[in-house]
């Protein structure tokens, strides 16, 4: 009993600094924000009762899902290769994948804009495939925002997956193959399953960063980008409707938290 109480004390002591910082810098301001959203005319019903604002919320969530899927599909093979590469260059290669994070979001977005204009390389390529109208341009489109966001968030997915895949015991894969599994089946049944924690962590990071992203959606999406962060910015700085902006921020937080929790729960249950 005494041993247990001591352990509890130690755990509380270890948690205290982080909890304190979290409480002061996150919980307290969030509470303030929430209280602000209650001032003045009803803000939550204004948002939730308006199909335009619900569309904005839908756009942001869809953006989060698309970017997460793209980074997962592109990032997993790369992270797997890097984790299994038996070369001293692996570290350098991993470092190279983080390059997009080193460039300012604004500079990176301007570079994408050049590629996305009607006469830009990316738009030209799509026009050449004949799948889009001859004057199609990626700038100002949902797809353009997904591409640009996926580029910057891909390293986060790769680094997260890399660490987890490296931790997967290769002997378990060998054992599976000894028992008759083909390499593909071993990858599916053993490696992927054990790496689920990484998939979950990477997805949550990418999803939360996507739904709250501002600079890239605003620059690539232009005026036609109706996303939550852009709307919050507009209400705060352009229209000075702080209660409404606070309400939108609170709604974004609650919705994305519930999506993240549901996702985590689903993935967690499957692991068991």
């Amino acid at each position: 009993m005494i041993e247990g109480a001591r352990r509890g004390l130690i755990a509380a002591g270890l948690l205290a600094p982080a909890a304190l910082v979290f409480a002061i810098l996150f919980v307290w301001p969030q509470l303030g924000l929430f209280l602000q959203s209650l001032g003045g005319p009803p803000t939550f019903s204004r948002f939730l009762g308006d199909s335009y604002y619900l569309g904005v919320l839908g756009n942001s969530l869809l953006l989060g899902v698309c970017v997460t899927l793209v980074t997962l599909v592109l990032g997993f093979p790369l992270a797997f290769l890097l984790a299994r590469a038996e070369t001293r260059w692996a570290g350098l290669l991993l470092l190279l994948t983080t390059f997009p994070l080193w460039v300012s979001a604004v500079v990176r977005s301007f570079a994408w804009m050049v590629l996305f204009f009607r006469s830009g390389v990316a738009s030209r390529f799509l026009q050449g495939t004949g799948l889009v109208a001859p004057d199609f341009q990626l700038i100002g489109t949902f797809a353009g925002v997904v591409i640009a966001l996926a580029q910057v968030l891909l390293p986060i997915m790769i680094v997260t997956l890399y660490a987890v895949i490296r931790g997967v015991d290769r002997d378990l894969e060998h054992a599976a193959m000894n028992l008759g599994a083909s390499p593909a089946v071993a990858l599916w049944l053993v490696t992927l399953r054990l790496a689920r924690g990484g998939v979950l962590a990477g997805s949550l990071l990418v999803f939360s960063l996507s739904v709250s992203a501002f600079a890239t959606p605003s620059l690539i999406g232009g005026a036609r980008a109706h996303f939550m962060a852009v709307t919050i910015y507009e209400q705060t700085l352009e229209l000075l409707d702080w209660p409404f902006a606070a309400a939108i921020a609170a709604i974004l937080l609650v919705i994305s938290l519930s999506v993240a929790l549901t996702y985590g729960k689903l993935l967690g249950e499957k692991t068991r």
Binding site: F110, V114, F117, R118, Q137, G222
Partner: peptide
């Protein structure tokens, strides 16, 4: 039309030729 938000985009837009 191309609807833009920031002043910094004016030159980029004209330079694009479109």
């Amino acid at each position: 039309a191309n609807i833009f938000r920031s002043a910094a985009e004016v030159q980029t837009l004209f330079a694009s030729g479109d």
